[in-house]
Design a protein around this nucleic acid. Structure first.
Length: 192
DNA sequence: AGGATGATCGTCT
DNA sequence: GACGATCATCCTC
């Protein structure tokens, strides 16, 4: 896919990414999954890492759109985001769940579990399954050599809800997911 | 099916 | 020093 096929604005991008395929060719083998759940972290958002301006960790949120922003959470997991908005504006889209498509053997090896549903359901799980870590931060995701976004099949219906795990700005409905897809994460009560 | 808990450390104040 | 855009595990219903 080309950069021009994606919206630059955060919320439209969060919706457009549903159904796209995320491919990782790094580490010891290719793994890929179809994005089924995202969250938007918009400009001026108190829940966004970019809220208080750029820091060493968050500088890629303020860079060009469609680049990877990867950070460590709780000292043990990674979360993968796609930067959004023009350079200078800090925003991004968190990828929360994938439907596994390719390289399931690699995913099982990296995750240490067998159940297909547990491979990429959750932001910390999918980064483990696709071997995405801090070294991926800043990479261009359109036309990238090792990690990139590809065309997928469009979602049937996209639902929205509050974002998960937040203490600030928790009431805003900036989470998007493919309705009825069993690989979507999160409590049922957030999927009306 | 759903709630509580502890692990664990990079990042920022 | 405090705090997480989480996960696995251990409970109770």
């Amino acid at each position: 896919m080309t950069a021009g096929e994606f919206p630059v604005e955060t919320v439209p991008l969060a919706r457009a990414l549903i159904g796209c395929v995320l491919v990782s060719d790094i580490a010891n083998g290719r793994a890929a999954g179809r994005i089924v759940e995202t969250e938007a972290y918009v400009p001026g958002d108190p829940a966004s890492h970019a809220f208080r301006g750029p820091t060493g960790r968050t500088r890629t949120m303020f860079g060009e759109p469609l680049h990877a922003y990867v950070y460590v959470i709780y000292g043990r997991y990674h979360c993968f985001n796609v930067s959004s908005e023009p350079a200078g504006i800090g925003a991004g889209v968190l990828v929360r769940a994938l439907e596994p498509l390719d390289g399931l053997a690699f995913m099982r090896e990296r995750r240490g579990v067998d159940a297909e549903r547990e491979l990429c359901r959750g932001p910390g799980r999918l980064t483990q399954a696709l071997a995405l870590d801090r070294s991926v931060d800043g990479w261009n995701l359109v036309g990238g050599a090792l990690v990139w976004l590809a065309r997928g099949c469009a979602p049937a219906r996209v639902g929205s809800s509050r974002r998960i795990g937040l203490s600030r700005a928790a009431s805003r409905r900036l989470r998007y997911y493919e309705r009825g897809n069993p690989f979507v994460s999160g409590p049922r009560n957030l999927s009306p």
